[in-house]
Design a binder for these strands. Structure first.
Length: 436
RNA sequence: GCGACUGUAGCUCAGGGGUAGAGCCCUCGAUUGUGGUUCGAGUUGUCGCGGGUUCAAAUCCCGUCAGUCGCCCCA
């Protein structure tokens, strides 16, 4: 006998999720639903390579994302001359590069969706992975992009998420011009620490935010003013009631109120203004979105975020291309639901097969093949059980894979069909049989 | 990158100086008027890795790696 081979013990790589077949079926159902909804609004699909040149990814300047760089195992001197490649950490940057590159072939406003994996070398946690799917939708136009797109995109996203059977979802919308306008009016030069503090309001509480703001150089009055603004939540009227300190702030107020007005057709809690939403350091300049799962208290983070940017592709082309986009954190959403409310995934069969075809008699192999082909031709998924062992084996097999029907061919026209749920057996014509 | 906790069978875990364990799963068989029940048999481990203390370490000590959670950040 041969020596026992060295086994590399298989293990999961943290942050790189993979699913069992029955989970994968549920995941594919989600993808189908999302794709269908996006296309129902006339968005087209594109796919970009997993890699970009590092210079493209870094074109915006400082990028705080942890980027995975690609390297060949057998490097030579030639390799050093090639430009370095890295895995993309989002789909917005590749989309900007794509838009600039194919500018002359695209029709504007360009509306596209993109469902691909992205990679970030961060420490994994619940809802945070290193390889994950995002479903992005963006609209980009030359020079001007109507504000109504900001509402349409939110509306699409609500419809998409609502159809996934994950309980109530809530889009929280703000406009960065409001808070940034206020900060500017106070003469603060670097708004980032202030916005970051505001972003944490719900997590760390008012007092802590007030302290941070004062540490950042605001006086007590100003800090209170920022805090008071940040606490505003509600509808268009609540936003209109805000007193603007300058034109920028007024623009933000008008824009946010307009977007909310255009979302009035949604259920009351589906889309609200929430001025704590500021979206950190990103390129967003106007509308910003986050999305929370109201019925999944175990996870408080946002499962879908995005916003409007004045000019996305300025680093790649000498055109002014404003856009608005939002991204569903697909893997985060799927994994959070999988871990907290697996029932909501509707996980069922471990096989896509409608029928398991079985024959005890080896001589009937040709008949089995023919019957399977006929049924497949009629649109059914048919799995043939190849092993003839103990009689009850194929039952256990069908049951454990949750295949709903077993088919026993009789002759070229007829077969016995056993309904696994009821145990009922009937002899039927294979051209007539239908799933109950 | 920082902090806390955890690493023992495929999975969930017990054992805390003296021969490596349980349940579940899996495989095979028996029973059973088809899948259920019951019974029998069987496979599986560098006790995460390296060093130290000891007559003796899965167990105590040091280091290291990995994982989980929190921070940071974000989908």
């Amino acid at each position: 006998m041969a020596e026992k081979q060295k086994i590399y013990k298989p293990k999961a790589i943290s942050g790189f999720p993979e699913w069992l077949p029955e989970e994968r079926i549920a995941e594919q159902r989600w993808f189908d639903h999302i794709r269908k909804t996006f296309e129902s609004y006339g968005f087209c699909s594109i796919e970009t390579p997993s890699v970009e040149e590092i210079d493209v990814l870094l074109a915006k300047g400082e990028v705080d994302k942890e980027i995975y760089v690609l390297e060949r195992l057998h490097k030579d001197e030639e390799s050093d001359k090639e430009s370095r490649l890295a895995l993309h950490f989002d789909q917005t940057v590749p989309f900007a590069r794509y838009t600039a590159q194919h500018f002359n072939d695209l029709v504007f406003p360009f509306k596209r969706y993109q469902m691909q994996r992205v990679w970030r070398g961060e420490r994994p946690q619940m809802g945070r992975m290193r390889e994950f799917y995002q479903c992005d939708i963006d609209v980009i136009n030359v020079d001007n992009l109507p504000l109504s797109f900001d509402a349409e995109i939110a509306s699409m996203i609500y419809e998409t998420l609502e159809g996934l059977n994950i309980g109530r979802v809530q889009l929280r919308i703000s406009n960065r011009k409001i808070l940034l306008g206020l900060i500017e009016s106070m003469g603060v030069t670097d708004p980032v620490p202030v916005t970051r503090a505001v972003d944490k309001l719900e997590k760390i509480g008012e007092e802590e935010v007030q302290n941070i703001l004062i540490e950042e150089g605001l006086n007590a009055d100003q800090a209170s003013q920022v805090l008071a603004l940040s606490k505003i939540k509600g509808g268009a009227d609540d936003i209109r009631a805000i007193k603007a300190e300058n034109d920028k702030m007024q623009d933000g107020i008008d824009e946010l109120a307009f977007v909310l007005d255009n979302l009035a057709h949604l259920p009351t809690q589906a889309a609200i203004a929430d001025l704590t939403i500021v979206r950190g350091l990103d390129y967003y300049t106007g509308t910003v979105y986050e999305t929370q799962l109201l019925d999944i208290p175990e996870y408080e983070g946002s499962v879908c975020s995005g916003g409007r940017y004045d000019d996305l592709a300025g680093q790649y082309i000498n055109k002014h291309l404003p856009g608005v986009g939002i991204s569903i954190g697909f893997s985060r959403l799927f994994d959070v639901i999988r871990q907290t409310h697996p029932d909501k995934l509707g996980i069922g069969p471990k096989s896509p097969a409608h029928l398991l075809l079985y024959t005890e008699d080896k001589d009937k192999a040709a008949l089995a093949t023919k019957t399977a082909q006929t049924l497949r031709g009629r649109g059914f998924n048919v799995e043939v059980y190849h092993t003839v062992k103990k009689w009850d084996k194929h039952f256990k097999y069908a049951k454990s894979k949750m295949i709903p029907t077993i088919c026993y061919p009789e002759d070229e026209q007829t077969a016995k069909f056993k309904d696994m749920a009821t145990g009922e057996e009937t002899i039927q014509n294979i051209s007539d049989w239908n799933q109950s």
